[in-house]
């Protein structure tokens, strides 16, 4: 009998978008390996998914910035799940841009959280999934990576690195039958964006974003703007000439 259970690893599993995705997967046959920093939040996320119908739910405490600990985590992950059908990389922070401009260490730390740690994880995951010859790597990047804006270019830079890395990796893994999807959410109503003065009409719920992510993974979309209208917004923003863009307050 074919095993239809989806084996899913999520890095940053307690983030609002990641957890909303996991809830949708839990409605089908799914087993999880949840990775996050806060053991209590991980335990709560695991309980929630179990009630919602998930099969095995394992948790693993890891700060993604501790790059040296990645291999041990992945070894445990493969031991637990056997194979990986979906790897969702969803961890991240929203840096305080002004503070990053004054403090090099903070800037590099934030770049590591949002950029380097993702590249490190993807490097290891890519090799194992390439050998496995199947599965999807779903990586949460951001519309902020499409263009550098004074208000948060450190975050944007890290996400741009992730986006470009994914594009290259997609081409490489295509030959092995492994798919890479770059997810670019716009404004999402999550704890990360709490208190930001965002234009209400443009803010999406984590549930709506999760739904489009799960569909895009099924359809093997390459790059997903979510909600979809961000594709049009970013198309315009990407084409604003620099002599205007640099004067705009963005």
């Amino acid at each position: 009998m074919p095993d239809n259970t989806k084996k899913i690893v999520i890095i940053g599993a307690t983030s609002a978008i990641a957890h909303a995705c996991a809830r949708l997967w839990a409605l089908g046959a799914a087993e999880f390996f949840l990775v996050g920093r806060d053991p209590e939040k991980l335990r709560q996320a695991a309980e929630d998914l179990t009630v919602r119908g998930a099969g095995q739910v394992a948790t693993y405490v890891l700060d993604a910035n501790e790059l040296a600990k990645h291999p041990a985590m992945l070894a445990r992950c493969f031991e637990t799940l056997g194979r990986i059908d979906i790897a969702l990389i969803a961890h991240g922070t929203l840096p305080d841009q002004a503070a990053c401009e004054q403090d090099v260490n903070l800037a590099l730390q934030e770049f590591s959280s949002n950029g380097l740690s993702v590249i490190a994880l993807l490097t290891l995951l890519a090799n194992r999934m390439e050998a496995q010859g199947s599965g999807t790597l779903a990586v949460i990047s951001s519309v902020a990576g499409d263009r550098g804006r004074p208000s948060n270019y450190l975050y944007g830079t890290a996400k741009a690195a992730v986006t470009t890395f994914c594009e290259g990796l997609r081409g490489r893994l295509y030959k092995a039958g492994v798919h890479v999807i770059t997810i670019k959410p716009g404004f999402v109503d999550t704890p990360m964006t709490q208190g930001l003065p965002l234009p209400k009409l443009l803010v999406a719920s984590p549930e709506a974003v999760a739904k489009s992510i799960c569909q895009a993974i099924e359809k093997r979309t390459n790059t997903l703007y979510t909600p979809a209208f961000w594709w049009a917004i970013m198309l315009v923003i990407k084409h604003i000439p620099t002599f205007i863009f640099k004067r705009a307050r963005l």
Binding site: A16, Q44, A45, E47, D48, V51, R52, P191
Partner: peptide, 17 residues
């Protein structure tokens, strides 16, 4: 944000959330 299920007992129908 307090929107998680905690436990469900299929035999008794008791849900903690």
């Amino acid at each position: 944000g307090l929107n998680r299920f905690i436990r469900f007992d299929e035999d008794t129908g008791r849900l903690v959330c």
